[in-house]
Design a protein around this nucleic acid. Sequence first.
DNA 1: ATGATGCTTCGGCGACGATCGAAGCATGAA
DNA 2: TTCATGCTTCGATCGTCGCCGAAGCATCAT
Lengths: 227, 227
Amino acid sequence: MKEGPSIAPIAALIGDPARANMLTALMAGRALTASELAAEAGVTLQTASGHLARLESARLLVVEKQGRHRYFRLSEPDVAQVLENLMGIAARAGLARVRTGPRDHALRKARVCYDHLAGERGVALLRGLDERRLIADEGTLALTEAGRRFFCDFGIDLERLERSRRPLCRACLDWSERRHHLGGALGAAILARLCDLGWARRGADRVVTFSPRGEHEFARVLAAPLS
Amino acid sequence: MKEGPSIAPIAALIGDPARANMLTALMAGRALTASELAAEAGVTLQTASGHLARLESARLLVVEKQGRHRYFRLSEPDVAQVLENLMGIAARAGLARVRTGPRDHALRKARVCYDHLAGERGVALLRGLDERRLIADEGTLALTEAGRRFFCDFGIDLERLERSRRPLCRACLDWSERRHHLGGALGAAILARLCDLGWARRGADRVVTFSPRGEHEFARVLAAPLS
DNA sequence: ATGATGCTTCGGCGACGATCGAAGCATGAA
DNA sequence: TTCATGCTTCGATCGTCGCCGAAGCATCAT
């Protein structure tokens, strides 16, 4: 009846539990096969196949064929962003999952949000960069001169990041902490570097685990103490 | 089966056409009555009543009673942001509304995105502020010293804005332009000031119309030429 | 070839939920 | 009080869509 693109079909697509589970699983940033996604969603393969076809034709997912496998991943970062935003709203509405096991604790501590660090550690990272004046948070985020030097030393190729179309720093709202963590190209690069250095490791799911030494170094040079 | 808040119920709520129409109507930032929303959605009053009750209990909407009327509005800016993000995805999926009338053109030109300016003019505004070095866009947005002085002269109380919890500048993705426009507290304040000055006027729907003089002044002191 | 694996298509079943008519309950006006 | 308006609740209907079993295609291995 009105104007603008119609959001209902897209939202309805996300609104089915099986599809939502698949999309959530893909927020870890890895590409998964149809069978894996069927298991994640708790449905049979033929049901999952139908769902995936619909998600793909709506361009929420893109597919890559490799032999007999079909690997699915989220098509664009903004899809991940919508999902993360929805989690924030769901958390406020009190729609936490019933099964809140030990993994849930690990998730709140440190997890992958599409391709950057989220959870307690993600929030501590942003606060640490702010307190160290490596990033200026004047309502929004910008790299300082000191920050520029620091990240070059830290082993991140800023020039390459800036040539991409993606924003360098982006404040991303954390559903578990209700505060911002660092997204954008820099956020992704930092997580990648943490893994390269062996300070952290990305698990099969979205959980990020720190090594003892990594935890120590992370707190020393990057993060703020937990508040 | 997994972890984190479950997004499916929230997305399903947005995924019904009637509810989506109501939410879209509320993106204009005004509070509307149940009857008005029923008309927007094209359903009877009793159907709308049920929808609204569900949207409220999920905290997507808040209600305010005034006499025999119940005024509904979006509960938080992040709800509006999810809706705008969904529009972006829907636009990419090619789900434009069938009825693309003259109002659609007006909407693409200038519209309200929750409480700030969007559309061609909104994008031109952000680009103009950037080119004039009033806002620094180093991957993300921050007010410069020159910008701080400018907006004080322009009649915006920056100190008040900064005391609020809301971010001052925020890049908001525009579904029609596929580029960023300015949101956040400053974005909202600028739109309000444009209306105070008589340069622009907010219509009953989301359309923003500029006066001839307002259009001229807007282009002179704020916006960039249309690219 | 033969079989195994990964995935898709088809058909039918079942359930959830969107819808509206009718009745009920408030609030405000005369 | 009496009536009108705005909204909610109830009950019943009906369409849509998610689901799985079974069969059909691909691709790869032997």
